[in-house]
Design a protein around this nucleic acid. Structure first.
Lengths: 123, 123
DNA sequence: CCTCCAGTACGAAATAAGTCGAACTATGAG
DNA sequence: CTCATAGTTCGACTTATTTCGTACTGGAGG
């Protein structure tokens, strides 16, 4: 296990049942000021940019990023991004995987993610 | 006086000498995270959007916005926007007029100002 | 069962941001 | 000079955010 699961027990789930996302704001409730606040932190910009650039078709657990920070700090930042509506997180067994809500963000704030993708951390 | 001045003493100033801008970061020093932080406040979004939409060819003093806030608070927010590189401010006699650094921001962060222009304050 | 592991929750401490009154400065008008 | 005006500066206060240690939860494997 770990991957979406080969669905042995349920042969007619279209691509595979995903765990339902953790609580997040609906697309129409996304607020520019909230999203900008969430993105105004270098570590969080790094998270989002990394997800945008190195997206390998699947979501990433927060250990994958390799940050040298205590886990409770990472939880804090991932939560901030999710509550602002930037990330979607799903629970896969033990780990919680994240992806950028690209469709929603492009629909509501076109161009914003491009800026994040091109961002470079300060010297 | 008050307007650029009819240049009686200096007949060969091209269109008219503008007062030089207050200290601000150069275009190449603009940082996405700093700009986003400056824009993540509803009052400051209101300021910038108003300048973008109702630009009447000239810069606006900070009284023009009609905010019902103490002057020291407004100073604080205008300064935050200027130091982040969002606004340029010039001193015209008594008043300090602001404009958005549209060229610089469009060059560095294309699309960002469009998001601000379309922003609507919360209910 | 018991253990390991990814990540959360809580809470305390430190730091940063916002708010605003009061005193001040500089310009322009009279 | 004197007054009014536009805005600053300082400092105090409040509030929000960040950081992180410690304790906890809840699956997976043996």
């Amino acid at each position: 296990m770990g991957m979406p699961s080969p669905s042995v027990t349920d042969p007619d789930t279209p691509p595979a049942e995903l765990p339902s996302p953790l609580p997040e704001p609906a697309r129409e409730d996304l607020r520019l000021e909230t999203v900008l606040a969430a993105l105004s932190d270098p570590l969080r910009l790094t998270i989002v940019r990394k997800l945008l650039l190195e997206r390998e078709a699947y979501d990433h657990p927060c250990g994958w990023f390799g940050f040298d920070r205590p886990k409770s700090s990472l939880t804090h930042h991932f939560k901030a991004l999710r509550e602002a509506g930037v990330l979607r997180q799903r629970q896969y067994g033990l780990e919680r995987r994240s992806r950028v809500r690209t469709e929603d963000l492009n629909a509501r704030f076109p161009g914003l993610l491009d800026l994040v993708a091109e961002w470079q951390p300060a010297s």
